[in-house]
């Protein structure tokens, strides 16, 4: 069998895909506690304190303790909640987050035990659209959670989340259009291949910034964490949640941060490519991607420690009056440049 190395849109045998599905879920499950402890440690350093340091060496087992505590708690729900929806909503959030994780390419097609395996969940021909499709469904996880809780804080949080996700998804999508025009492909591995000469955060710097800012809103991170502004909404859409269901929301939220870091890495930071023309062996690729993702995730935490929360109307007018026109302009200029230089 000819090894289809470097082929875009390659699909493996069915059993390889099942194994990959399990591996992806396992990797996603492992990454979330790491990001959790990293966030708490780094935030601690930013605020001149130690952060968690009691459980395990240097407190590194703290997330395990947290998760264990949450999972062993009693499952309860408010009397005003709408039963089935209340239980389904966190599951939707977690499902869409893991599904979105599947398209992040951690490497090219590699030869593993004589079997060509792409180091990604699936290399879809529609690329980023897959991401936005699951983003659209993820909205229902938040929305249903807030609505079915039957409490005004949850409801307000969910409504804010809805408006925010919709507003910033547009800018996020338009920021990616510039990259797609430049790379002339929708496949994420294809986009990485196209960055062989130069990573896209240089020619698409405006798109990079817009995507990053919009991603903060999409993942409900500070300074755009209006959906769970604890000063005004108690806890936002997950106010009424506790125990395992709250853990699901929490998990999905951090997984979304990881997914966004992965997308930024893939689309703007050259994916598994190394700078200065270094070509390491194939098994290094996933680690390159992970390091880049760690840098972006650190940036997310850094911003959380630095910036205060915006006001809600500021968030909306910034999204529609600043970010969206900029993203449109970026797309337009990119299209003109590509047409002129071809």
């Amino acid at each position: 069998m000819i090894l289809p190395l470097g082929v875009v849109g390659y699909y493996e045998a069915w059993w390889v895909q099942i194994v990959k599905g399990i591996v992806i879920f396992a990797v996603a499950l492992q990454l979330v506690p790491i990001v959790l402890i990293a966030e708490r440690k780094v935030l601690g350093r930013f605020q001149s304190r130690y952060g968690p340091n009691r459980v395990g060496p240097f407190g590194f087992l703290q997330p395990m303790a947290d998760i264990l505590k949450l999972l062993t708690k009693e499952q309860f729900r408010p009397r005003t909640s709408a039963g089935v929806m209340f239980a389904i909503a966190p599951a939707i959030s977690i499902l869409t987050a893991v599904a979105a994780f599947a398209i992040i390419p951690f490497g090219n097609v590699q030869n593993i035990f004589g079997e060509p395996v792409g180091l990604y969940g699936v290399d879809v021909s529609i690329g980023p659209l897959y991401l936005f499709a699951f983003g659209a469904i993820a909205f229902y996880g938040v929305m249903l959670g807030g609505w079915s809780s039957g409490s005004k804080y949850s409801f307000l949080g969910a409504m804010r989340a809805a408006a925010q996700l919709i507003s910033y998804e547009v800018s996020q999508g338009l920021a990616l259009v510039g990259v797609i025009i430049t790379a002339q492909t929708l496949s994420l591995t294809g986009i990485v291949h196209a960055q062989g000469g130069m990573w896209y955060f240089i020619p698409q710097f405006a798109g990079f910034l817009i995507f990053l800012v919009a991603s903060f809103a999409e993942t409900n991170r500070t300074p755009f964490d209006l959906t769970e502004a604890d000063a005004e909404l108690v806890g936002g859409y997950n106010t009424e949640y506790g125990g395992g269901r709250f853990a699901s929301y929490y998990f999905a939220e951090y997984l979304n941060v990881i997914v966004v870091s992965g997308i930024v890495t893939t689309v703007f930071l050259g994916g598994w490519l190394m700078p200065f023309g270094i070509h390491p062996p194939g098994w290094v690729d996933p680690f390159v991607v992970l390091v880049k993702m760690a840098i972006i995730t650190f940036f997310f935490i850094w911003v959380r420690a630095t910036l205060p929360r915006l006001r809600y109307d500021q968030l909306m007018s910034f999204g529609w009056k600043v970010l969206l026109p900029l993203a449109t302009l970026n797309t337009l200029v990119t299209a003109i440049v590509v047409v002129v230089t071809h």
Partner: peptide
């Protein structure tokens, strides 16, 4: 029809139904 499927979800299930 992957493209149509994705657009169906993004536009209808996403934007319109929101």
């Amino acid at each position: 029809a992957e493209f149509v499927a994705a657009v169906q979800v993004v536009v209808y299930a996403g934007a319109v139904m929101v």
